[in-house]
Amino acid sequence: MNLRALAAIFAGVLCIAAAADPADRLPDPTQEARARAIFADVRCLVCQNESIDDSEAELAGDLRRIVREQVKAGRSDAQIKGFLTDRYGEFVLMTPAFSWMNLILWGGPFVVVVSGAGLLISRLRSRPGDTEFSPEEAERVRGLSETDAS
C-alpha cells in the first residue's frame, strides 16, 4: 500500500454523503430544488468522481454555497454553469459539452448503430449467387456436417 492509495481511500471516505444539510438550505423550495438539480451536474473537484450533491468535502460545500447564492440572486441555470466553467473549466460539469471536440464521444454510439444497421441491410440483400451451393444444398451440407459432428 502506498501513499497515493491511502490518499484515495481517505478522499473516498471524506466524500461520503449528501448535500441536503438543513443548515444551508434555501428558504424557497422551488429555488432549492433548482439548486439541487444543478448540484447533480457539478463535479466535486477534489473528490473521486462525485457530484457536489453527494459530497461532504469542504470544496463541495463552498461550491454549493456559490450555486445557492446565484440561484437566490435569480440567475439562470445556464448562467450559473457558465460561471462555474469560466472558473474551473469544462471539467467541473458532469455533462460533457456538445462541442466539436466531443464529436467522437457523442457521435460514437450513433456511428455504431448506423454501421451495424448498414451491415445488416447488406447482409439481408446479399444474393446467394456468390457461393457455389444453392441455399438448399448448403443447408443439406450443413445438416450432414452437423450430424457428423454430434
Partner: peptide, 15 residues
C-alpha cells in the same frame, strides 16, 4: 480528450 487537447472534461451520469 486530455491527450488530444490537454483539457480535462468529465463524463458523468447525464451523458
Amino acid at each position: 480528450r486530455q491527450a488530444l487537447s490537454g483539457e480535462a472534461i468529465s463524463v458523468g451520469p447525464p451523458y
